[in-house]
């Protein structure tokens, strides 16, 4: 079979492109450690969040030397706690659940973004850098007040985090 030289070139480039796409995604997973939001958490009763150990009192908790967990409840129409205050240069895992309908949890301008489904707990781990402030929006239509459903994520210095006192409680 005769295949034109240009066609051979085109076929080779197509294969190179496919390998490059797979290669970059593999690099992302192995190098920077990009992960998907997994269905790793067990289900909970969305009507009984006030009896749940983690979500009865939405908060940020230190769980390791530089590791923190944020328990966040999304409900019509806001996020608790508000603002979510986390320390800079640390690893923060967000556990987000909904008390009513499906919401979204998107830290604006970042890759931290997940659906929030009642009965499910969405878990995302991120690494914070310098102190800054982010907005949080709900990106799943959740009712009449969807467009005003927003929160704040404050990344503060370690000392500020330790001295935050009652301002975020």
């Amino acid at each position: 079979m005769h295949i034109h030289a240009y066609e051979k070139l085109w076929l080779a480039l197509s294969i190179v492109l496919i390998l490059a796409l797979i290669g970059t995604v593999t690099y992302g997973a192995v190098g920077p450690g990009v992960a998907m939001v997994a269905d790793s958490q067990s289900t909970i009763d969305p009507a009984a969040l006030d009896e749940d150990e983690r979500f009865s009192e939405p908060r940020v908790e230190q769980v390791g030397e530089n590791e923190y967990e944020a328990y966040v409840v999304a409900r019509q129409f806001g996020f608790q706690p508000d603002p979510i205050v986390v320390p800079a240069n640390s690893t923060v895992t967000f556990y987000v659940t909904s008390a009513d309908v499906i919401h979204g949890f998107e830290v604006v301008g970042t890759s931290a973004n997940t659906m929030v489904v009642p009965g499910e707990v969405s878990e995302i781990t991120v690494e914070t850098d310098e102190p800054t402030e982010y907005g949080i929006v709900c990106n799943e239509y959740c009712g009449a007040g969807h467009h005003v459903m927003q929160g704040k994520l404050h990344v503060v210095s370690q000392s500020q985090f330790e001295n935050r006192g009652g301002d975020s409680a």
Partner: peptide
């Protein structure tokens, strides 16, 4: 077209995606 595609992919993945804050790592 091929060059545009490769440059666009590099920009979208390495600059826009990996360059953002709060990359989800777990």
């Amino acid at each position: 077209y091929f060059v545009i595609l490769v440059l666009a992919w590099v920009y979208i993945y390495f600059v826009e995606f990996l360059g953002r804050d709060l990359v989800v790592v777990g």
